[in-house]
Design a protein around this nucleic acid. Structure first.
Lengths: 208, 208, 208, 208
DNA sequence: CATGAATGAGGGTTCATTCAT
DNA sequence: AATGAATGAACCCTCATTCAT
């Protein structure tokens, strides 16, 4: 009787969506734990509680699944980051305070599935299609930085905003990465404080 | 007695050494182009102009070969970097000038087999044994930074030398990486200049 | 709910079982013909009419497959032997007649896949894990012999039952082996008769 | 100067012979320890203290080397056995005593390189060319047995000498094998005693 | 004769993907 | 839509044997 047409459609779609979700979550966990190359389709299916065939009903192949997980992850990070930035902007603190807020915002955004994040990062180096996406991400980050800077007008000491946006972005990214991915002998607090100091002195005339 | 052995022995050893070298170079090229996982033993052998078996006569397995290539690469980078740093120290320029010299030194050191470098970097994220080596490298870099800073005494503005060393190291590393690995919309010159500016303002009281 | 699963499940399992069986039978044939070391996984798959991968879906490796074939073979031999012994015991013939019956029982039990049996025998000498199994088999055979002897009470001439059980077991085993594995210039009938004579005279006071 | 012809020839041949011997002995040790299939040419060469190429200068291939080791081993066993039998014959003991002497003779003959012996035994089951040699061995043993029996004339109880020779040979062989190859829960002494008892009762009218 | 580097066919095993049920 | 058995190309690695020195 389940083969009658109209009504169940929605339910079925809902179930479908759920299955898809299960697979994506399982993949995120496993890719994070072991990396793209060390996870096989059987494992993913098993972790998701479905059959291998089911997995291939939803995703054309493993690489594609990875990319989708990555996309979701990126968007989530983006959303969180944007939210935090908006908060900081709203608070409207002075230079140093603001910078510190931003640094912490990035730090917190990176706290989402850091394991998966790490593996994705790895692929950006070795996988062509990931490298493309990385490029895009940087571009967006760059635009965001430039826009933020513009808001500070004369208070800025820098002149080459383009280059500065890149430099600042990379510095923040790398420090946060390091802390999240590999940890540090120095405490996170000291690291983030120094990072904020560096950026403040670099960016603002009055570096207090 | 039995002295008829000497000479050929040496020749043979020389040939042996040459073969080893051929394999290492072929591996560096291929690993750089495609990454550890996408290169197979047959390819390496073919690129080196030897048989698969020969490859396995010299290296216990592919991973091991990669590590040896990596080790050589690291040491080479280290040598070049140390040399350049020594030059800069010898020249004895003032703060900003010196920092710029160092930044350029790191940049040049990264110009050795940047493709291989990129792939090695990728593995540091996903491969356990590579992560270990990464840790060590950072430790050494950290020590080097701290030592260099010490030389500046009162001129330094920073107080938390430990954290600063980390931050500075990561910032330089990440910018140079970005330029070498992925290029940049902004010219290298502008990027390196801004980087030097940032570091100078961060580190020194008198940031000229 | 979800009851649409039941039937196909069973069918699939049945197919699965059949594939497993096909592989086991193919393996028994090939191992018997050429020995463990001279058969490769591709051959086994081909003989079973499946792909190599399928073989590895069912057995973790070649050695394991061999052991399973061996286990099945041993159990089958054991079953046949026990059946025949029970028949002989039931018939309740006198000493010589009974012994002859037992000898023939062992002979018949060894008629199952004698080729495979031969190869398994070979491995008992050279392979550690097979040697272990051999030990166990002998122990069981020993126990069986002792039990049978006990049934004859005073009629027995021997005093050291333990040793006798070993000796008798080995003698029977070796003669049957020889006949089955390598054949003999002398007819099987004469061989088995003499064997029975020997054992009868050895075991019983009244050796008729 | 070593290229002058006449004199060194002998010396060279002697050295040659020594090298051959080293290889044969190394092979016997290794084959005994690990079996034909688990020993590779490099190992053999290393154990013999020569280069792989040298090994192939003396033997066309690994199989051939094995066969030569086997041949030597067989002949040695044969020599020892014949000697011991001659001793027993010379001593001229009565039936049971004589049989016991023979059993012990076989036992002692099997004490030469029992490890190698075991591995050779394994190959007789699985290797065609070894099976051939086995056949020959049995034939010779058979002939020997028949000849020995003939010496006892009327004292013998058996009538089918041919079959008896086979049976007796197999029984002795199997028991000795078992003791030497796998050991036994029952002491060797008891085992050999029972074996001798069995044979004596089987063969002689007056079984004391 | 001795050497040991070089060879490459061949073997065991994995795994992304397909497809009949 | 779900299943999971089946597939086979591809991979890593071994090792008997050869041959230039």
């Amino acid at each position: 009787m389940e083969s009658d047409h109209r009504k169940p459609r929605k339910t079925v779609q809902a179930r479908s969506q759920k299955t898809r979700e299960k697979i994506l979550l399982a993949a995120e966990r496993l890719f994070g734990k072991k990396g793209l190359h060390s996870v096989n389709s059987k494992e993913i299916a098993a972790e998701a509680g479905v059959a291998v065939g089911t997995f291939y009903n939803y995703f054309p192949d493993k690489q594609d699944l990875f990319l989708e997980v990555f996309e979701r992850h990126s968007m989530e990070v983006g959303r969180v980051l944007d939210g935090r930035i908006r908060d900081e902007v709203a608070r409207g603190g002075g230079g140093r305070e603001f910078i510190y807020g931003l640094v912490k915002a990035v730090y917190e955004a990176h706290s989402l599935s850091p394991d998966f994040h790490r593996q994705a990062e790895a692929l950006k180096y070795s996988d062509a299609s990931m490298a493309v996406r990385r490029k895009q991400e940087r571009k967006e980050a760059h635009a965001k930085s430039v826009a933020l800077m513009a808001g500070f007008g004369d208070k800025l000491r820098i002149t080459d905003h383009e280059a500065a946006a890149e430099i600042v972005g990379l510095a923040v990214e790398s420090v946060v990465h390091e802390l999240k991915m590999f940890g540090s002998e120095v405490s996170e607090f000291r690291m983030l404080k120094e990072l904020a100091d560096m950026l403040t002195r670099y960016l603002f005339r009055d570096d207090t």
